[in-house]
Amino acid sequence: MTTKVPVRSVFTPASWGQRMAERGRTAGELAGLLIRNGRWWLLPMLIIMSLTAVLLGVVHVIEYAAPFVYTVF
């Protein structure tokens, strides 16, 4: 029917480097917001949580490689 996708709307995704830089800016903006609102003391918690998130991300990647990797933990 009329649902063929014209070339014009095929997107050009941003590169990995650009995305990481953008994430860095977002983290900076979040820190700025918390400092502005007097909640700077939340930053250590967020850093710990982010490290946990990275750890969980790594665990997920390993899980994809071998679902039963948990047995070595």
Partner: peptide
């Protein structure tokens, strides 16, 4: 909440740029 936000939603700006192909 932490899984959702730290995993993806906090980074929606870069995700939107990636998925929609727009610049920041």
């Amino acid at each position: 909440a932490m899984r959702t936000w730290l995993g993806s939603r906090l980074w929606l700006k870069s995700d939107i740029c990636k998925e929609l192909g727009c610049s920041s």
